[in-house]
Amino acid sequence: MKLQLQDIPRVKNITQEDFIKHYYKPQKPVVLEQFIEDWPAVSKWNLDYIKTIAGDKTVPLYDDRPVDYKDGFNEPHAKMNLGDYVDLLKKEPTRYRIFLWNILKEVPQLQKDFSYPKLGLKFLKGLPMLFFGGEDSYTFMHYDIDLANIFHFHFEGKKEIILFNQDQSKYLYKVPHSLITREDIDFSNPDFNQWPALQYAKGFKTQLNHGEVLYMPEGYWHYMKYVTPGFSMSLRTIAKRPKNLSKALYNIFIMRHFDNLMRRLRGQRWIDWKNDQAIVKTNGYIKNL
């Protein structure tokens, strides 16, 4: 048995009108294969170039260890010079990833290598973020705290991606008061005996190559696995749908602070309770189908 995943549509290029009509308004994902061919980044950006231009920068690193009550919100597990990290990526598989690294702040000159897509959307220009990963490293299934529309630009190598709309949350073992599913689910090869609700989830899949762009609609769940060492950049626009915008505001101003408070008050018992509730609520839902 496999997850019910359909291939994300792919187009070579797209006009603003077609993007708005066929993907943005209906909130459907799409891969743009040759949309940024005029960017200097397409010919320049690879691991060696990033090492040359920013190798002395200290970067936050994350791995796939389970959430611990001592961890703060998005707190890194380690730090390393970017040059040493690139050497590690090229030497051997590693679980360490760079997550949400703001290139505008850290390496302003990289901004000269890309431009903001003219697709009729207003991008948050202070938040271009880079993500790096080694062979077989992956992110847990999650959605972004602000439920933004995300444009994900991939560079060097290949990356596998699985997406689910928010309406599939009831099948995904979502952990309450958080933005993730159960971390012990392997979405690249799930155990349906252990996680039976996943058989009902309907999502999307694709593999991104160098220079390709994935549009992820507001609040989409995403799981990303690096087939080879590589990196990506995300640009985002604010959620426009009232339901998603209100949920984003709740996440930012209430949910994350409540979760941090409960970690301090209850410690690991809070994390364990949330993980248990993910199973109780999800399996309870499918029993009523």
Rank of each mutant, 00 (worst) to 15 (best):
L3V: 05
D7V: 09
D7Y: 08
T15N: 08
Q16S: 13
D18P: 05
Q27D: 11
P29G: 09
E37D: 14
P40G: 03
V42D: 03
D48W: 07
I50D: 02
Y62S: 02
K70M: 09
D71T: 00
A78W: 06
K79Y: 05
K79A: 08
G83Q: 10
L89A: 05
L100R: 12
W101N: 00
W101H: 00
N102A: 01
I103R: 04
L104H: 04
Q109F: 11
Q109H: 14
Q111K: 13
F114A: 02
K118N: 15
K125G: 00
M129R: 02
F131C: 06
G134I: 00
E135I: 04
Y138D: 02
D144M: 07
A148V: 10
A148M: 10
E160I: 00
E160T: 01
E160S: 14
I161S: 04
I161V: 15
I161R: 08
S169Y: 02
S169W: 04
L172P: 06
L172S: 02
Y173G: 03
V175R: 14
I185G: 12
F192D: 12
L198K: 11
Q199K: 15
F204V: 04
N209I: 00
N209T: 01
N209L: 08
H210D: 01
G211D: 06
V213I: 09
E218G: 03
W221T: 01
K225A: 00
G230L: 06
S234W: 00
R236W: 02
R236F: 03
I238C: 07
I238S: 13
P242W: 07
P242N: 05
K243C: 04
K243N: 10
K247M: 12
A248E: 12
M255S: 13
N260E: 14
N260W: 11
R263V: 02
D272V: 07
I286C: 09
K287S: 14
N288Y: 09
